[in-house]
């Protein structure tokens, strides 16, 4: 009763905020400007957003309490945890099913909405943005409390619960869903700001206010995608980390749109260009994020993410329609306000590079969207489903990725307005030489133009980004007479967006190097008895024995496999094939040996239950995978620096005492 009651109360506050916030604003007849005429009403609506957060957090606390006290009278608790579950999987069980996922969704949305509503500097943009956020809360709270009640009770209380889905027994699953949700849901805040700017005709500076609000979900979504990849790699056992699954694609598309916006927003801030485009991108990011949720929840397309399907899918479709109509309708309505104030001066300029990168990003979104929706389109038109697989996506996305890396390198070295081709060429010579120095021997050794090409593009971008950071640190060190490290730190403190961005580029380049390794993946499957040896990818594998024992919730079959290279034992791998009694299904635990050169990835796919104890092993040789995770970590660090270093600067200490006395004097005079 308490949990659902709190959701209902939160819903009431959200309805109030959605109406009260815009009612605090009025359009002046003479100037046409929107001004806040009832600040008390706006303050009350802002407080209502905090109240919604309190209610939803309270409801989540009720459910978590039920999980930790093993209160199996709640159907959701009985289905998703058991007495033997460790604390961290008890905690993450909250989002193991549909109803809890929606509750987490409401919680994260409420955190965003309350954080947005309590900021004072966005006051004139707030009323309508709060209305959009509160309207979104009304939708989610209605389906959470009304359709998918996580607080439903059982008539007969079981002695123990079913336990968490064995596939979700992974540390990544504790972080991946909340991170992904933080990314997807967060896209609604920039959308709310865009709606507010369009309604109240404050289209001049909304982009500057929006950047931080899109940087947070962009970073979270990117991190969530990588964590999802890591989960797929370590848990699913097919040897890869990205399969162009519809749900992966659905999370990738808003991320691509948001990445495009992070670049095009700079063009609007600097030059007053791409203003219509920016509104369109922010709307697209939000609509694609909702679309992603809709795909996951509707079960329209088959996916590995089938943990939670329910009829709420069709309501998401309605919400998606409203969001699209509001976004596009407002954009068309305010089109005259969004005319650019400047034109492109030269094709050799930062804005031209950013414009081109935006087009490539959008081509990427459209191609992924097309590939994802093809089964639905062909089903509707021809009556039978036609799907495209990873080869299609790899073929179309690889050239786009190469184009983006060249554009990112160009965009790093070229200036605003009118760049000098000669200067650009001079600054690209060394990175291009470095790229060639690495790619040429790779081509000679591996005889793959595609692989060597990817390495060339990636090293070009990595070298350009690293050279730019090093060059700026050197200049700063010379001017300030600081040591190199202090100058380096100063760079990130003074211009976190730019240098954080370069670090993200560097990380992406390293990720691409890791992905390029997939050109040389190899796989084999063997059926061997204990004591046997098999060879694969230059390694010898000795299957020593099979250990079998019972754990509280599963029967464990653990194979001990020694790994030899050039006659020397280098590792012992222990893949498992476990039978989860509550779920009545087997689940592989994969053994991976990671090195900078390649991963050896061993899956115990089947065992002979008899005396022979022979095992079927699927072994993958995955080159360079480690660099995907290293690159992603560098990119996330860059994103965090761009976000946090900027904050510190904004709220940093007062000007240093070394400031000229005349400036202090001027400040004093201005105050008095």
């Amino acid at each position: 009763m308490l949990g659902r009651g709190l959701l209902g109360l939160g819903l009431a506050f959200a309805v109030y905020a959605a109406v009260a916030a815009p009612a605090s604003m009025r359009r002046e007849q003479d100037t046409g400007e929107f001004t806040i005429v009832r600040p008390d009403l706006l303050d009350s609506a802002r407080r209502a957003m905090v109240a919604v957060l309190g209610c939803v957090a309270g409801a989540a606390a009720v459910l978590w309490y039920a999980f930790f006290t093993r209160d199996f009278s709640y159907s959701y608790v009985a289905l998703n945890t058991s007495r033997s579950a460790p604390p961290w999987y008890t905690f993450s069980a909250l989002w193991a099913g549909m109803a809890g996922s929606l509750l987490l969704w409401c919680l994260i949305l409420s955190v965003y909405a309350a954080a947005f509503a309590t900021r004072r500097r966005l006051r004139r943009l707030q009323p309508w943005a709060i209305s959009v956020l509160a309207g979104t809360q009304v939708f989610f709270l209605t389906i959470t409390a009304g359709l998918e009640n996580p607080f439903a009770r059982l008539d007969v209380v079981p002695a123990d619960g079913r336990g968490l889905n064995p596939l979700l027994h992974s540390p990544g699953m504790v972080i991946h869903p909340p991170m992904l949700y933080t990314g997807l849901i967060g896209m609604i805040v920039p959308f709310a700001l865009a709606v507010s700017a369009l309604v109240t005709r404050q289209t001049k500076n909304w982009v500057r206010e929006t950047r931080v609000w899109i940087l947070v979900p962009w970073l979270a979504l990117g991190t969530g995608l990588v964590l999802g990849g890591a989960w797929a790699y370590t848990e699913l056992g097919w040897g890869g980390y990205w399969g162009w699954d519809p749900v992966e694609n659905a999370a990738l598309m808003p991320w691509l749109a948001a990445t495009a916006f992070l670049h095009s927003a700079m063009v609007e801030e600097r030059r007053g260009m791409l203003r219509i485009w920016n509104v369109f991108l922010v709307t697209s990011a939000a609509v694609l994020a909702t679309f992603g949720t809709f795909l996951t929840r509707s079960g329209l397309l088959s996916s590995v993410h089938t943990f939670a399907q329910s009829p709420v899918g069709k309501w998401f479709f309605v919400f998606l329609g409203i969001q699209t109509i509001v976004g596009i309708g407002l954009l068309l309505w305010r089109l005259p306000d969004l005319r650019s104030t400047a034109a492109l001066d030269s094709a050799v300029s930062k804005e031209a590079a950013f414009l081109a990168n935006n087009l490539v990003f959008c081509a990427g979104v459209l191609l992924v969207l097309w590939g994802t929706l093809l089964p639905l389109i062909t089903q509707a038109v021809f009556g039978s489903q036609l799907a495209v697989g990873p080869p299609f996506f790899n073929r179309v996305m690889t050239p786009l990725g190469a184009a983006l890396m060249v554009l990112a390198s160009l965009g790093t070295v070229v200036g605003w307005r009118r760049g000098s081709p000669r200067r650009v060429a001079r600054r690209l010579v060394v990175p291009a030489a470095a790229a060639t120095a690495v790619a040429a021997p790779v081509l000679a050794a591996k005889h793959s133009v595609a692989f060597a090409g990817m390495i060339w593009f990636a090293v070009l971008l990595a070298a350009t980004s690293a050279a730019e950071i090093a060059r700026a640190a050197r200049v700063r060190s010379r001017l300030t007479r600081l040591g190199t490290f202090a100058a380096f730190r100063g760079l990130f403190a003074r211009n976190p967006r730019r240098y954080g961005g370069y670090l993200v580029h560097l990380g992406v380049a390293v990720v691409v190097i890791g992905m390029a390794g997939s050109f040389f993946r190899a796989q084999t499957e063997v059926d061997v008895a204990p004591g046997s040896t098999f060879r694969f990818a230059g390694y010898s594998f000795v299957y020593r024995r099979l250990d079998q024992f019972a754990a509280p919730d599963k029967d464990v079959n653990l194979a001990v496999v020694d790994l030899y290279r050039r006659g020397r034992r280098i590792d012992t791998l222990r893949p498992q094939l476990n039978f989860h009694r509550n779920w009545d299904q087997p689940q592989s635990e994969i053994a991976i040996r990671t090195t900078p050169v390649a991963d050896i990835y061993v899956v115990l796919a089947a065992i002979d239950p008899g005396q022979a104890q022979s095992g079927v092993f699927r072994v993958h040789y995955n080159p360079l995978v480690l660099w995907v995770w290293v690159g992603a970590a560098i990119a996330v660090l860059g994103g965090l620096l761009a976000l946090l270093a900027g904050r510190r600067r904004k709220h940093g200490p007062a000007p240093a005492p070394a400031e000229p006395a005349i400036v202090r004097e001027l400040d004093r005079v201005r105050v008095t």
């Binding site: 709190l6 506050f13 109030y16 008390d40 009350s44 407080r47 209502a48 309190g54 309270g58 004072r120």
Partner: peptide, 30 residues
């Protein structure tokens, strides 16, 4: 018990939200 907690939360949050409208003066528009 649940009902008592729920009613208490209702009252506290309602007062919190309504305060700017009654008494607690809102800050001027910035």
């Amino acid at each position: 018990m649940d009902v008592a907690i729920f009613l208490l939360v209702c009252v506290v949050l309602a007062i919190f939200v309504a305060r700017p409208l009654y008494g607690d003066r809102a800050r001027p528009d910035d």
